[in-house]
Amino acid sequence: MKEGPDIARVAALIGDPARANMLTALMTGKALTATELAAEAGITSQTASTHLAKLDGGNLLRVRKQGRHKYFSLATDDVAAVLEGLMGLAAKSGHLRTRTGPRDASLRKARVCYNHLAGDMGIRMFDSFHGRGFLALEDETLQLTRTGAEFMTGFGIDLDSLTAQKSPLCRECLDWSARRSHLAGSLGRALLARIETLGWARRDAGSRAVLFTQRGEAAFADRLAVAPV
Protein backbone atom coordinates (compact mmCIF):
# COMPACT_ATOMS: atom_id res chain seq x y z
CA MET A 1 0.00 0.00 0.00
CA LYS A 2 1.35 3.43 -0.94
CA GLU A 3 2.03 5.84 1.90
CA GLY A 4 2.51 9.61 2.06
CA PRO A 5 0.65 12.63 0.68
CA ASP A 6 -1.89 11.95 -2.06
CA ILE A 7 -0.80 14.47 -4.69
CA ALA A 8 -3.02 12.83 -7.31
CA ARG A 9 -6.17 13.86 -5.42
CA VAL A 10 -5.07 17.47 -5.08
CA ALA A 11 -3.92 17.57 -8.69
CA ALA A 12 -7.27 16.20 -9.87
CA LEU A 13 -9.12 18.88 -7.90
CA ILE A 14 -7.03 21.68 -9.42
CA GLY A 15 -6.76 20.14 -12.87
CA ASP A 16 -10.39 20.39 -13.95
CA PRO A 17 -10.63 23.43 -16.30
CA ALA A 18 -13.65 24.94 -14.56
CA ARG A 19 -12.15 24.52 -11.10
CA ALA A 20 -8.80 25.86 -12.33
CA ASN A 21 -10.52 28.99 -13.64
CA MET A 22 -12.31 29.53 -10.34
CA LEU A 23 -9.14 29.06 -8.32
CA THR A 24 -7.26 31.45 -10.60
CA ALA A 25 -9.99 34.05 -10.11
CA LEU A 26 -9.45 33.82 -6.35
CA MET A 27 -5.77 34.72 -6.80
CA THR A 28 -6.87 38.36 -6.54
CA GLY A 29 -7.17 37.75 -2.81
CA LYS A 30 -10.84 38.75 -2.85
CA ALA A 31 -13.63 36.50 -1.65
CA LEU A 32 -16.16 35.80 -4.41
CA THR A 33 -19.66 34.34 -4.49
CA ALA A 34 -20.61 31.14 -6.30
CA THR A 35 -22.39 33.23 -8.95
CA GLU A 36 -19.26 35.30 -9.58
CA LEU A 37 -17.10 32.19 -9.76
CA ALA A 38 -19.54 30.52 -12.14
CA ALA A 39 -19.15 33.49 -14.48
CA GLU A 40 -15.36 33.24 -14.24
CA ALA A 41 -15.52 29.57 -15.18
CA GLY A 42 -18.20 29.98 -17.85
CA ILE A 43 -20.50 27.41 -16.25
CA THR A 44 -23.96 27.39 -14.64
CA SER A 45 -24.43 28.22 -10.97
CA GLN A 46 -25.56 24.65 -10.25
CA THR A 47 -22.42 23.18 -11.83
CA ALA A 48 -20.28 25.73 -9.99
CA SER A 49 -21.80 24.68 -6.66
CA THR A 50 -20.79 21.07 -7.33
CA HIS A 51 -17.21 22.09 -8.16
CA LEU A 52 -16.98 24.40 -5.15
CA ALA A 53 -18.15 21.62 -2.84
CA LYS A 54 -15.34 19.42 -4.13
CA LEU A 55 -12.73 22.16 -3.65
CA ASP A 56 -14.03 22.85 -0.16
CA GLY A 57 -13.95 19.14 0.66
CA GLY A 58 -10.35 19.04 -0.51
CA ASN A 59 -9.44 21.89 1.89
CA LEU A 60 -8.49 24.23 -0.95
CA LEU A 61 -11.14 26.84 -0.14
CA ARG A 62 -12.30 28.86 2.84
CA VAL A 63 -16.06 29.45 2.92
CA ARG A 64 -17.67 32.29 4.85
CA LYS A 65 -21.38 33.08 5.11
CA GLN A 66 -22.62 36.64 5.29
CA GLY A 67 -26.32 37.23 5.13
CA ARG A 68 -27.81 35.15 2.33
CA HIS A 69 -24.51 34.76 0.50
CA LYS A 70 -21.55 32.44 0.79
CA TYR A 71 -18.14 33.85 -0.05
CA PHE A 72 -15.25 31.71 -1.22
CA SER A 73 -11.52 32.42 -0.94
CA LEU A 74 -8.36 30.35 -1.09
CA ALA A 75 -7.85 28.38 2.10
CA THR A 76 -4.21 29.31 2.77
CA ASP A 77 -1.12 30.99 1.36
CA ASP A 78 0.15 27.49 0.52
CA VAL A 79 -2.72 26.98 -1.93
CA ALA A 80 -1.88 30.31 -3.60
CA ALA A 81 1.80 29.35 -3.80
CA VAL A 82 0.94 26.07 -5.54
CA LEU A 83 -1.27 27.88 -8.06
CA GLU A 84 1.40 30.48 -8.81
CA GLY A 85 3.95 27.70 -9.25
CA LEU A 86 1.66 25.91 -11.69
CA MET A 87 1.20 29.16 -13.63
CA GLY A 88 4.98 29.43 -13.89
CA LEU A 89 5.28 25.84 -15.08
CA ALA A 90 2.48 26.34 -17.62
CA ALA A 91 4.11 29.52 -18.96
CA LYS A 92 7.52 27.86 -19.19
CA SER A 93 6.01 24.86 -20.99
CA GLY A 94 4.24 27.07 -23.53
CA HIS A 95 0.73 26.45 -22.21
CA LEU A 96 -0.57 30.00 -22.46
CA ARG A 97 -4.01 31.45 -23.04
CA THR A 98 -4.35 32.80 -26.56
CA ARG A 99 -6.08 36.07 -25.68
CA THR A 100 -3.74 39.05 -25.81
CA GLY A 101 -4.24 42.73 -25.21
CA PRO A 102 -3.23 45.78 -23.15
CA ARG A 103 -4.14 44.05 -19.90
CA ASP A 104 -1.35 41.50 -20.42
CA ALA A 105 1.33 44.20 -20.20
CA SER A 106 -0.23 45.56 -17.02
CA LEU A 107 -0.28 42.12 -15.43
CA ARG A 108 3.36 41.55 -16.25
CA LYS A 109 4.33 44.94 -14.84
CA ALA A 110 2.53 44.65 -11.49
CA ARG A 111 -0.21 42.35 -10.22
CA VAL A 112 -1.62 40.77 -7.11
CA CYS A 113 -0.44 37.26 -6.35
CA TYR A 114 -3.14 36.33 -3.82
CA ASN A 115 -2.17 39.06 -1.34
CA HIS A 116 1.27 40.35 -2.28
CA LEU A 117 2.93 42.24 -5.14
CA ALA A 118 4.09 40.23 -8.16
CA GLY A 119 5.15 41.07 -11.69
CA ASP A 120 8.19 43.09 -12.74
CA MET A 121 7.77 45.59 -9.90
CA GLY A 122 7.50 42.83 -7.30
CA ILE A 123 10.69 41.27 -8.65
CA ARG A 124 12.49 44.62 -8.58
CA MET A 125 11.49 45.10 -4.95
CA PHE A 126 12.65 41.60 -3.98
CA ASP A 127 16.00 42.05 -5.76
CA SER A 128 16.47 45.44 -4.08
CA PHE A 129 15.74 44.06 -0.60
CA HIS A 130 18.11 41.16 -1.18
CA GLY A 131 20.87 43.36 -2.60
CA ARG A 132 20.61 45.87 0.24
CA GLY A 133 20.90 43.14 2.84
CA PHE A 134 17.32 43.35 4.07
CA LEU A 135 16.69 39.67 3.29
CA ALA A 136 18.98 36.69 3.76
CA LEU A 137 18.78 32.91 3.56
CA GLU A 138 19.36 31.11 6.85
CA ASP A 139 19.12 27.31 6.86
CA GLU A 140 17.39 27.50 3.45
CA THR A 141 14.74 29.82 4.93
CA LEU A 142 14.25 33.43 3.88
CA GLN A 143 14.71 35.75 6.86
CA LEU A 144 14.39 39.48 7.49
CA THR A 145 17.72 40.87 8.73
CA ARG A 146 18.16 43.48 11.47
CA THR A 147 18.82 46.11 8.82
CA GLY A 148 15.72 44.99 6.99
CA ALA A 149 13.63 45.19 10.15
CA GLU A 150 14.79 48.77 10.75
CA PHE A 151 13.85 49.71 7.19
CA MET A 152 10.42 48.08 7.39
CA THR A 153 9.61 49.80 10.67
CA GLY A 154 10.63 53.12 9.15
CA PHE A 155 8.37 52.42 6.19
CA GLY A 156 5.39 52.00 8.48
CA ILE A 157 5.22 48.21 8.77
CA ASP A 158 4.14 46.83 12.17
CA LEU A 159 6.55 43.93 12.50
CA ASP A 160 5.40 42.99 16.01
CA SER A 161 1.92 42.34 14.65
CA LEU A 162 3.27 40.33 11.73
CA THR A 163 5.58 38.13 13.81
CA ALA A 164 2.66 37.30 16.12
CA GLN A 165 0.86 35.66 13.19
CA LYS A 166 1.13 31.97 12.35
CA SER A 167 2.02 32.54 8.69
CA PRO A 168 5.71 32.94 7.72
CA LEU A 169 7.02 36.49 7.77
CA CYS A 170 9.04 36.11 4.56
CA ARG A 171 8.67 33.60 1.76
CA GLU A 172 9.93 33.46 -1.80
CA CYS A 173 7.26 33.05 -4.47
CA LEU A 174 8.17 32.21 -8.06
CA ASP A 175 6.75 34.74 -10.51
CA TRP A 176 5.00 33.03 -13.42
CA SER A 177 5.69 35.76 -15.98
CA ALA A 178 9.44 36.08 -15.40
CA ARG A 179 10.16 32.90 -13.40
CA ARG A 180 12.07 34.91 -10.81
CA SER A 181 11.28 35.43 -7.15
CA HIS A 182 9.10 38.03 -5.49
CA LEU A 183 8.31 38.45 -1.79
CA ALA A 184 5.37 36.63 -0.22
CA GLY A 185 4.50 35.87 3.39
CA SER A 186 2.94 38.26 5.88
CA LEU A 187 5.60 40.89 5.10
CA GLY A 188 4.79 40.78 1.38
CA ARG A 189 1.11 41.20 2.21
CA ALA A 190 1.83 44.13 4.54
CA LEU A 191 4.01 45.87 1.95
CA LEU A 192 1.28 45.73 -0.70
CA ALA A 193 -1.25 47.07 1.81
CA ARG A 194 1.13 49.88 2.71
CA ILE A 195 1.67 50.77 -0.97
CA GLU A 196 -2.11 51.02 -1.38
CA THR A 197 -2.53 53.05 1.82
CA LEU A 198 0.08 55.55 0.62
CA GLY A 199 -1.91 55.98 -2.59
CA TRP A 200 0.94 54.81 -4.80
CA ALA A 201 -1.20 52.21 -6.54
CA ARG A 202 -4.64 50.64 -6.69
CA ARG A 203 -5.94 47.27 -7.77
CA ASP A 204 -7.70 47.05 -11.14
CA ALA A 205 -11.28 45.99 -10.45
CA GLY A 206 -11.40 43.88 -13.61
CA SER A 207 -8.17 41.89 -13.26
CA ARG A 208 -5.25 41.07 -10.99
CA ALA A 209 -3.30 44.10 -12.23
CA VAL A 210 -1.92 46.65 -9.76
CA LEU A 211 -1.98 50.12 -11.35
CA PHE A 212 0.62 52.60 -10.10
CA THR A 213 0.22 56.34 -10.43
CA GLN A 214 3.12 58.26 -11.94
CA ARG A 215 3.95 59.69 -8.53
CA GLY A 216 3.54 56.30 -6.91
CA GLU A 217 5.85 54.58 -9.36
CA ALA A 218 8.53 57.21 -8.74
CA ALA A 219 8.15 56.85 -4.96
CA PHE A 220 8.23 53.05 -5.26
CA ALA A 221 11.51 53.23 -7.21
CA ASP A 222 12.98 55.68 -4.70
CA ARG A 223 11.99 53.84 -1.52
CA LEU A 224 11.53 50.15 -2.34
CA ALA A 225 13.22 49.29 -5.61
CA VAL A 226 16.49 51.19 -5.20
CA ALA A 227 19.32 49.41 -7.01
CA PRO A 228 21.93 48.26 -4.46
CA VAL A 229 25.20 50.21 -4.50
Rank of each mutant, 00 (worst) to 15 (best):
Met1Pro: 13
Lys2Arg: 14
Pro5Leu: 09
Asp6Glu: 12
Ile7Thr: 13
Ile7Ser: 10
Ala11Asp: 09
Leu13Asn: 04
Gly15His: 06
Gly15Lys: 07
Asp16Val: 07
Asp16Arg: 12
Ala18Asn: 07
Arg19Val: 02
Asn21Trp: 00
Asn21Gln: 09
Leu23Ile: 08
Thr24Trp: 06
Ala25Asp: 04
Leu26Tyr: 04
Leu26Ile: 10
Met27Asn: 07
Gly29Gln: 06
Lys30Asp: 15
Thr33Met: 00
Glu36Phe: 03
Glu36Asp: 09
Glu40Ile: 00
Ala41Asp: 05
Gly42Glu: 01
Thr44Ser: 15
Ser45Ala: 11
Gln46Phe: 13
Thr47Lys: 12
Thr47Pro: 04
Thr50Glu: 11
Leu52Met: 08
Leu52Asp: 08
Ala53His: 07
Asp56Gln: 11
Asn59Glu: 13
Leu61Phe: 03
Val63Ala: 07
Arg64Ser: 15
Gln66Glu: 15
Arg68Pro: 10
Tyr71Thr: 05
Phe72Val: 02
Ser73Ala: 14
Ser73Lys: 07
Ala75Gly: 01
Ala80Arg: 03
Ala80Asp: 07
Ala80Phe: 06
Leu83Arg: 03
Leu83Gly: 08
Gly85Phe: 08
Met87Phe: 15
Ala90His: 11
Ala90Arg: 12
Ala91Tyr: 14
Lys92Ala: 15
Gly94Val: 08
His95Arg: 11
Leu96Arg: 14
Thr98Arg: 09
Arg103Gln: 14
Ala105Gly: 06
Leu107Gly: 09
Arg108Glu: 13
Lys109Ile: 05
Ala110Arg: 00
Val112His: 05
Cys113Ser: 14
Cys113Leu: 09
His116Tyr: 13
Leu117Tyr: 06
Asp120Ile: 08
Arg124Asn: 07
Met125Asn: 01
Met125Arg: 05
Met125Tyr: 01
Phe126Ala: 00
Phe126Tyr: 14
Ser128Leu: 01
Phe129Ile: 01
Gly133Asn: 01
Gly133Phe: 07
Phe134Trp: 12
Ala136Ile: 04
Asp139Ala: 13
Glu140Arg: 10
Leu142Tyr: 04
Gln143Ile: 10
Leu144Ala: 04
Thr145Tyr: 06
Thr145Ile: 07
Thr147Leu: 11
Phe151Tyr: 04
Met152Cys: 05
Gly156Pro: 00
Ile157Asn: 01
Ile157Thr: 01
Asp158Asn: 12
Ser161Pro: 00
Ala164Gln: 09
Gln165Lys: 05
Ser167Gln: 11
Pro168His: 00
Leu169Ser: 01
Arg171Leu: 04
Arg171Pro: 06
Asp175Val: 02
Ser177Asp: 11
Ala178Phe: 08
Arg179Ile: 09
His182Phe: 13
Ala184Gly: 13
Gly185Thr: 00
Gly185Arg: 00
Ser186Lys: 02
Gly188His: 06
Arg189Trp: 04
Ala190Gly: 03
Leu191Trp: 05
Leu191Ala: 10
Ala193Tyr: 03
Ala193Asp: 11
Glu196Gln: 12
Glu196Cys: 08
Thr197Pro: 02
Thr197His: 14
Leu198Cys: 09
Trp200Thr: 01
Asp204Leu: 08
Ala205His: 10
Ala205Gly: 03
Ala205Val: 11
Gly206Ala: 13
Gly206Pro: 02
Arg208Ala: 14
Arg208Lys: 12
Thr213Asp: 11
Glu217Cys: 03
Phe220Met: 05
Phe220Tyr: 14
Asp222Gln: 15
Asp222Glu: 15
Arg223Gln: 15
Leu224Gly: 05
Ala225Thr: 06
Ala225Lys: 02
Val226Gln: 15
Pro228Trp: 01
Pro228Thr: 04
